[in-house]
Structures are given as C-alpha cells and as structure tokens.
C-alpha cells in the first residue's frame, strides 16, 4: 500500500511515530482523491435526475430494496468488525484480530454475492444498461440513464469492495503471522480507513438508488 506498510523506520523519518502520521496523512489524501472519483458519477446522477425526475422515480421502484437494505446492514456491520479488529490489536489480542478480520472479509464477500444475485435478477428482467436495456414495463428514454448509472455507481463501488476484501485478506495473513503489535499496526489502520470509505460511499448510494421512490 505505502512505504509505511512495514514497521521499520525508513531512512527519511526521525521516528516511527512520524512515519505513521505521514502514512495516515497519505491515506486521507488518497481517500479524498477517491471521493472525487465517485463525485463525478454523483454529479452525473444529479444532472440526470434533475432532467428526468419522473423517470428516475419510476425506475427506482424496480430496484431491489430488500437486497439493498440487507447489504446496507452488512456493510455497516463490517465497519464495526473492522474497528473491533483494530481495537483487538491495540489490546494485543492476535487471535481476536484475525477473527474480526475474517468476519469483515466474510461480510465483504457476502455483500458481493448478494450484489451478483441482485444484478442477475435485474438482467433477467431486462433492466440492463445502455443499448442492452430490454425492460418492457418502462420506456427507455430517461429511465435507461438511471439504470446505467445504477450499474456504474454500484459496479464501481463493488470493485472497491472487492479490492478492499483483497487488502483485508492480506492484512489477516499478516495479523496471523504476528506482524502487528499494539504500538505498530499502521497497515491495519490504513486498511480500516479504506474500508470505512467503501462503507461511507454505500451510505450515499443506498438512499440515492433505492430509497428515492
């Protein structure tokens, strides 16, 4: 992830503390950059929703509110287990750390699986993006923009979830190996920050895509 992923003091730093603070700052800047990536799509959403309020309203009625809501709970809980994993590391409890990380990974994978189920359902109905739109209940004009944005926003978010799961697996392996001590576990903290961003983005997606009906 970054130079500070290992706990050695690198030559350009005075102290480990300074190095960790720098890594945290770098992560926050990266998260700011990530937010702007999503912001572009949110801007598109805002513009098109302003242009097609009725169509967006009608289209969102076909979103799968049940799965969307379950996934919201899953992600929020996974943020909790992530925070608990860091807490356990601070108390020096390695086995607990690994267990909480495993739970977070399981939640992340569960989110992805439900997302795939949701996508499959939509595609079977013909609610597909762009030129592939074949949903007979609603005329394409304007509605297809909601559908395309739905896939773009949730797809980009799901990519982030999947990337996050990969990072979490790596962190869990390192935690298992005993890489993290109560004083030094910056990689875990950074992974946690990233995971919380993924969660936060979903908290915007849920109302914008599922709850606007």
């Amino acid at each position: 992830m970054s130079a500070a992923a290992t706990s050695r003091v690198h030559v350009q730093y005075d102290s480990l503390e300074r190095q960790h603070d720098t890594a945290r700052l770098g992560m926050w800047v990266f998260l700011g950059s990530e937010s702007l990536l999503f912001a572009g799509l949110f801007a598109l959403y805002a513009a098109y929703r302003f242009a097609y309020p009725v169509e967006f309203h009608a289209a969102s009625a076909h979103a799968n509110l049940v799965i969307g809501t379950i996934n919201t709970y899953i992600l929020l809980t996974s943020s909790l287990t992530m925070a608990l994993a860091i807490h356990a590391t601070r108390r020096g409890r390695r086995r607990e750390t690994v267990a909480f990380l495993a739970a977070t990974i399981a939640f992340g994978l569960g989110f992805d699986v439900l997302k795939i189920v949701e996508y499959a359902g939509h595609l079977a109905e013909g609610l597909a993006p762009g030129d592939y739109y074949a949903f007979t209940a609603l005329p394409a004009h304007g509605v297809v923009l909601y559908v395309t944005l739905y896939y773009l926003l949730t797809g980009l978010h799901a990519l982030h979830v999947t990337g996050g799961v990969c990072v979490l697996v790596w962190l869990a392996l390192r935690a298992q190996r005993g890489d993290f001590t109560p004083q030094s576990h910056i990689a875990l903290e950074l992974g946690g920050l990233y995971w919380h961003l993924v969660d936060l983005v979903w908290i915007f997606l849920w109302p914008l895509l599922y709850l606007i009906r």
Binding site: L36, L41, Y48, E55, P129, G130, A140
Partner: peptide, 27 residues
C-alpha cells in the same frame, strides 16, 4: 480522478455502448 472517470465512461461507451452521453437515450 474526475478525468479518469470521464475518459473511462467514454471507453465503456465506445466498447460496450453504455450510452451515458447518448442523446438518443436521453443523455
């Protein structure tokens, strides 16, 4: 990141016809 997003949308549109900027679909 916003540039990255907008050129990716063009790439997606070009390769997969997502039509996010296509006036025929209301874009």
């Amino acid at each position: 990141p916003v540039l990255g997003l907008s050129v990716s949308l063009v790439a997606l549109d070009h390769a997969l016809h997502m039509g996010i900027f296509d006036p025929a679909l209301g874009g």
